[in-house]
């Protein structure tokens, strides 16, 4: 067989090159090592911790996590918060981005002010809102000065206002992230598309629905994934405002780890968040995939 094949000239002329590691591998090696040490290893450790006791594999910690009276309320609260907060945030962020796009006076200042919460630590934000919603906080002071009965916003037996307070604080704190992503996405869309739609008779809502939002889809997808994953991790604001009165999954993780000194159950809870985040990302990626543009990229 080999006789029929023409000899490869390169192999005749040059001696066999010594096997080398491709430069690409060398280039990404530092980040691979870095990621493996700082992300991969802890993840593996965490997963193992949730399932391993001194006697080997066990579901004991998972069982303990599920049977804890705070677990299901925490899951329910987290999901409820996500379900209400994410649509609200996107409505706000898109509205604000569209307002900014219409080049109002001082648009840079507006954008800067709206982006401030991004720079704030979430615990600080929680404390700020605590000073507002507190029984003797700013909000109640205003109400009292207007002659309206004050409301114990953060009372443990008032789950609706507890939820509302956490919701308002979280929306305030984290909408700016969505805003920044949506604004940068809008800036990436040439104005011509919107102008063409205007000339061809499309009104504001028609343009939003048929032109702007579809073209914004990649940015919205990124923002959705980021925001939802981060919403699963909502913690400090709720902790500052409500303590354990409005339990969330990450708050429970924290309580098991520091309060109850049980890292194994805490690891199991963290695993719940990891799995939920992965599932939701896969869901978004599939749901928002542009069927039309497949194969062209």
């Amino acid at each position: 067989m080999t006789v029929d094949l023409p000899p490869a000239p390169a192999q005749l002329d040059t001696p066999a090159r010594p096997r080398r590691i491709p430069p690409a591998v060398l280039l990404i090696a530092p980040s691979i090592v870095f990621m493996a040490l700082l992300l991969g290893w802890p993840v593996i450790q965490g997963v193992l911790q949730a399932f391993r006791s001194d006697d080997g594999f066990t579901l004991e910690f998972v069982t303990r996590m599920v049977q804890d009276p705070y677990f299901w309320p925490a899951v329910r609260n987290t999901l409820l918060l996500i379900a209400v907060m994410i649509p609200l945030q996107f409505a706000f962020a898109i509205t604000m981005a569209l307002l900014l796009r219409s080049n109002p006076r001082l648009d840079k200042v507006h954008f800067f002010v709206w982006a401030i919460p991004l720079a704030l630590s979430d615990l600080a934000a929680g404390l700020v809102w605590l000073s507002i919603f507190n029984d003797r906080g700013y909000l109640n002071s205003v109400l009292a000065s207007l002659g309206i009965d004050t409301i114990p916003w953060l009372a443990y037996d008032n789950p609706t206002t507890l939820f509302l307070c956490v919701l308002v604080a979280e929306v305030w704190r984290s909408t700016s992230l969505v805003l920044v992503i949506v604004v940068s996405g809008l800036q990436g869309i040439p104005k011509d598309y919107d102008e063409a739609a205007q000339v061809f008779g499309a009104g504001f809502w028609q343009r939003l629905r048929h032109v702007t939002l579809p073209l914004l889809k990649p940015s919205l997808q990124v923002a959705l994934i980021l925001r939802t994953i981060l919403a699963f991790q909502t913690f400090a604001v709720a902790q500052a405002l409500t303590g354990q009165n409005f339990p969330l999954v990450v708050g429970e993780t924290y309580r098991w780890y520091t309060g109850l000194q049980n890292p194994n159950v805490a690891a199991a809870l963290a695993l719940v968040i990891l799995v939920a985040s992965m599932l939701i990302s896969i869901f978004y990626l599939r749901a928002l995939r542009d069927k039309g543009q497949e194969g062209t990229r």
Binding site: D192, E195, V199, L215
Partner: peptide, 18 residues
């Protein structure tokens, strides 16, 4: 623009990519 009953060809075409 949408009330003027005009149509336009843009330099960049502005054909909706999606």
């Amino acid at each position: 623009p949408n009330k003027r009953n005009m149509s336009m060809v843009f330099q960049s075409y502005a054909v909706f990519p999606h």
